[in-house]
């Protein structure tokens, strides 16, 4: 158990050299590498944390946006639905109005057509009745009827009211007598005589035959006239027929 001091010295030197060698080749490189890796890991963690934060923020942002979008789309949908509903109601009303207008128009048209038709029917009926009456009376007209007509006319001339007589007297300087048939001289004299008696002694009486009068005789003095004419009766018939048909039309409508 002896100590070789040379060996001791050599081993001290060896040990110190080994310390230097290991410090140079082992401890420093390994610790540096570990520090670098730790720093890198820490950096990465920090980066990951930052990314996560950013991601979280973005996610929150997008969530909010999505929510807003959803809300706005809901609102828009509601608005669109409301607008569509309103539009539908409006269109319905519009079409209803149009239909109503068309119906009114159509009814008016129909009414008009009905009235026109009735008017035409009326006119034709009246004309037909009138023509029939005319034909009948023309066929029946003979001397006896004419004498009867003249008698009636003379009676009417004699029995006219005072007011008319006064007006006729005032304008009786010239009296025109129109008749549907030809008057013989005796009749003309009789008429002239009665006119002279009833109206004016100096009145000038002119006679003429007129085909306008269907069957009758007409005295005209100035603006006034006295007559018996089948035309009057036919006109009255016409009026009555018209009234009757109008009443029927009203009740039909």
């Amino acid at each position: 158990m002896d100590i070789d001091w040379l060996t001791v010295f050599a081993q001290i030197v060896n040990f110190l050299v080994l310390v230097w060698l290991l410090q140079h080749f082992l401890y420093r490189p390994v610790i540096d590498a570990m520090d670098r890796r730790e720093k890198r890991i820490a950096d990465r963690l920090e980066e990951a944390q930052q990314r996560e934060q950013t991601a979280t923020q973005k996610a929150r942002l997008y969530e909010n946006k999505r929510f807003e979008l959803e809300q706005s789309s809901k609102q828009r949908l509601q608005e669109a639905e409301t607008a569509a509903q309103q539009h539908r109601v409006k269109l319905l009303e519009q079409s209803r109005d149009e239909i109503q207008q068309q119906r009114d128009q159509w009814q008016q048209q129909l009414q008009q057509e009905q009235q026109d038709y009735l008017r035409a029917l009326r006119k034709n009926s009246v004309q037909a009745i009138q023509q029939t009456g005319r034909h009948i009376l023309a066929d029946l007209a003979d001397t006896e009827l004419e004498a009867q007509i003249i008698a009636v006319f003379l009676k009417r001339l004699t029995n006219m009211d005072d007011d008319l007589r006064q007006k006729l007297q005032n304008s009786a300087s010239r009296v025109d007598i129109s008749s549907a048939f030809d008057l013989d001289d005796a009749t003309q004299n009789l008429i002239t005589q009665i006119i002279h008696q009833q109206l004016n002694e100096s009145a000038t009486v002119k006679y003429k035959q007129s085909s306008d009068l269907v069957c009758g005789i007409l005295l005209k003095a100035g603006d006034y006239q006295v007559s018996w004419n089948l035309e009057n009766h036919l006109q009255m018939l016409d009026e009555q027929l018209q009234n009757a048909l109008n009443g029927g039309t009203v009740s039909d409508a």
Partner: peptide, 12 residues
């Protein structure tokens, strides 16, 4: 196993 070595280390 040499006392010289262990002595050297102990001196260190």
């Amino acid at each position: 196993g040499s006392l010289s070595t262990t002595t050297a280390l102990a001196i260190c």
